[in-house]
């Protein structure tokens, strides 16, 4: 009976929590969309107006120019700011982000969609790989912290954490494409292969992904190992670990107690960095000429493609907001202290 009584409020609390998160997330996305709309409208040298005027100068009638601009941006360039805003929000609700300027006529959503393919998988692989590696090495570095190997591991973490990602990328490029040319220097895939589920194409994909993934892994590994090491050292000092040893628990069980408690805070960071991966990694994509979201953002800025810029920002925002929600729910699932509503 006690169980049922305690479970019911727990269930509603979870539902309330999820609803609260979703509502807050939507508000956040709306705020970012509004800001990017206002910026694009109010920026000096208004690109929408500029477009409209250049079309007029090309001899279009005001009507035609207005329609052409509307097609490009997804909202009316004339009318009151409020009308335009409503129009913009309306198309947003239909997942329409307007059309790109730099690749005229192409929907921003499809540009982002194709770029996302090249970002999400490599960055996801890099993030998970570096997380796994960093966590395992971090535990090891913490346990062996008074020995040479522990020092060495911690040092490797600090060092890699301190080296900028583009330096790592350039070094790896120099080593593996010039000194010892076993890997391709750029691009996502060899154009010689027919896209599809054939061994050659997939092999080429993997071959090309090695350097970006390794670079990303090395660049974020330092942070993971340092964070995990300090968490493990902190938990090692907790009374319940000594208590578990004094109760004669098996080493494996004590280790699980240790690892689970130490890894807990890292899950939040992991969820957030997976959210960030929608922003791509600008440096890595630049260096390896990988047509991902980072490169798309850079290109949209350099060509003043405001529709694309706004769209990319919005996708990054959505990624981060969703990741935040996932992180919080994940924490709820794995930390009983949060689950029952007590601050951890």
């Amino acid at each position: 009976m006690t169980k049922a009584v305690r479970d019911r409020p727990r269930g509603t609390a979870l539902a309330r929590r999820v609803t609260g998160h979703v509502v807050r997330g939507l508000v956040m996305i709306w705020v970012v969309a509004t800001i990017s709309f206002v910026i694009i409208r109010e920026i000096p040298g208004d690109p929408v107006q500029g477009m409209y005027e250049s079309l007029l100068q090309k001899g279009m009638s005001p009507d035609q120019a207005e329609r052409a601009t509307a097609v490009l941006y997804g909202f009316l360039p004339t009318g009151s700011l409020w009308d335009q805003y409503v129009g913009y929000m309306w198309s947003l609700l239909h997942f329409d982000l307007g059309r790109s300027l730099s690749t005229p006529g192409v929907a921003v959503t499809s540009l982002i969609g194709s770029a996302a393919r090249w970002t999400v998988l490599p960055v996801l692989a890099g993030t998970l790989l570096s997380f796994l590696l960093g966590v395992i090495m971090g535990v090891y570095a913490a346990i062996k912290r008074s020995g040479k190997l522990g020092d060495l591991l911690a040092l490797s973490g600090s060092l890699l954490h301190g080296i900028p990602v583009y330096v790592i990328g350039l070094l790896l490029t120099a080593i593996f494409t010039t000194l010892w040319p076993i890997l391709p220097s750029g691009g996502p895939v060899d154009v010689a292969f027919v896209p599809g589920l054939n061994a050659g194409y997939i092999g080429s994909l993997i071959h090309h992904a090695v350097l970006p993934v390794v670079t990303y892994t090395l660049a974020s590994y330092g942070g993971w190992i340092l964070a995990m090491k300090s968490n493990v050292v902190a938990v090692l000092g907790d009374d319940f670990i000594l208590a578990a040893e004094l109760r004669g628990l098996k080493r494996g069980i004590v280790f699980r107690y240790l690892a689970r408690n130490a890894i807990l805070p890292l899950f939040t960071i992991l969820a957030l960095s997976i959210g960030m991966l929608f922003g791509g990694s600008i440096f890595i994509e630049e260096i390896f000429n990988y047509p991902g979201l980072g490169l798309l953002l850079v290109n949209s800025i350099s060509t003043r493609d405001y529709a694309l810029m706004g769209g990319t920002f919005l996708v990054i925002t959505v990624g981060i907001v969703v990741a935040n929600i996932v992180a919080d729910l994940l924490y709820t699932a794995i930390d009983p202290r949060v689950r029952s509503g007590e601050a951890a």
């Binding site: 907790d238 009374d239 319940f240 000594l242 208590a243 578990a244 004094l246 107690y257 689970r260 408690n261 807990l264 794995i334 930390d335 009983p336 202290r337």
Partner: peptide, 12 residues
């Protein structure tokens, strides 16, 4: 344990 208050694994 001296600090029996904190001698239990908080996650289990």
């Amino acid at each position: 344990f001296q600090a029996a208050q904190s001698s239990l694994n908080p996650l289990k």
